[in-house]
């Protein structure tokens, strides 16, 4: 497992951990039922707050990416198609949010923005 913490990025640290582990699970680099580092161990290795790491794991567990066996640790949950679809939908939503943000920043109206999206989709075909 590879995790990079960027202190200068402005993205919350828990989010950085969450996103990177999630990506590695969805991408198959982390295999089903693989044992993940302990929450405390990971926090100390990355030299970050334990609470933050715990929050990232809790978030991943809530969304079904990992499961906990009491006394043993956290494991990668079996991949399921629904989860991956869900994951991609989330990515789309995030991109749309970004589009809306950039659109607002340069004063595009809703209609103009939708036009841009429509053109973009035409090109894809």
């Amino acid at each position: 497992m590879t995790i990079w913490i960027d202190n200068r990025s402005g993205t919350p640290i828990y989010d950085q951990i969450y996103t990177q582990i999630r990506r590695q699970i969805v991408g198959g680099e982390l295999k089903e039922n693989e044992l993940l580092p302990s929450i405390r161990g990971l926090a100390k290795d990355l030299r970050i707050s334990f609470i933050t790491t715990k929050r990232a794991y809790e978030e991943l567990e809530k969304e079904g990416f990992l499961y906990t066996v009491p006394g043993k640790g956290c494991f990668v949950a079996p991949r399921n198609a629904e989860l991956i679809r869900e994951e991609n939908l989330k990515k789309i939503e995030a991109h749309i949010e970004e589009i809306a943000r950039l659109g607002a920043a340069c004063g595009l109206s809703r209609e103009e923005l939708l036009d841009v999206v429509r053109f973009g989709l035409e090109d894809e075909r």
Partner: peptide, 9 residues
């Protein structure tokens, strides 16, 4: 500064 990183609270 540098110690802030590992603080939980």
């Amino acid at each position: 500064s540098d110690l802030e990183r590992i603080c939980d609270y």
